[in-house]
């Protein structure tokens, strides 16, 4: 290709490819945008989304399986066991560390920790990123009643033992009736 032809080809190529590019962009100029106005309008989030955790506290048995599964040890839980019942002190998840890998969800024997669809997480204070997942602290009301009952039953048993009497276990239904009264 001699110099003149090259020169002309450069001019032609530059002009043509620019016009092709402008044609493509011009086509989109007239189309409706595909983005959404975020705070006013939100795209649907699928069910499997790995967002901020939530905990079904009543089911949880403080087995620490999730905390062990966590690669960065960001889950900490603390509960006091009263017989079968649990008195919750804390169940914190440090979202400064958490990388939303969902490895904590699968080992759970009671299927009680889940990842929700909430993702927005803004704070002026870093300490607020340490979330407490508990919905209530201490014990649930029913659990407390069950615990008191069990303790009372134990006391009665012991008292009866002390009295030397052999008392058969009371049926469950009676205990429930007493609790309700």
């Amino acid at each position: 290709m001699n110099a003149t032809a090259k020169y002309a080809k450069n001019v032609w190529d530059g002009l043509k490819s620019s016009l092709v590019g402008m044609q493509i962009t011009g086509k989109y100029l007239l189309q409706k945008p595909i983005t959404v106005q975020y705070p006013l309008e939100r795209l649907p989030i699928p069910n499997r989304y790995r967002g901020i955790h939530y905990l079904e506290q009543e089911k949880c048995i403080n087995c620490l399986a999730c905390a062990r599964a966590c690669p960065i040890d960001c889950i900490e839980m603390d509960a006091v066991r009263h017989g079968k019942e649990l008195e919750w002190v804390s169940f914190t998840l440090d979202y400064q560390k958490c990388m939303f890998c969902e490895l904590c969800v699968y080992p759970c024997p009671k299927d009680c920790i889940h990842m929700g669809t909430e993702f927005a997480f803004v704070s002026y204070d870093r300490s607020e990123f340490k979330h407490d997942l508990l919905s209530f602290k201490g014990m649930a009301r029913e659990a407390k009643i069950r615990m008191l009952e069990a303790e009372e039953k134990k006391k009665r048993k012991e008292a009866a033992k002390a009295a030397g009497q052999e008392v058969a276990d009371e049926p469950e239904s009676d205990a429930d009736a007493e609790a309700e009264s």
């Binding site: 450069n10 190529d13 530059g14 043509k16 490819s17 620019s18 092709v20 590019g21 493509i24 962009t25």
Partner: peptide
């Protein structure tokens, strides 16, 4: 392809 790869300036 047309917008960038074939663009004269890009080339």
């Amino acid at each position: 392809y047309d917008l960038l790869m074939e663009n004269h300036i890009f080339v």
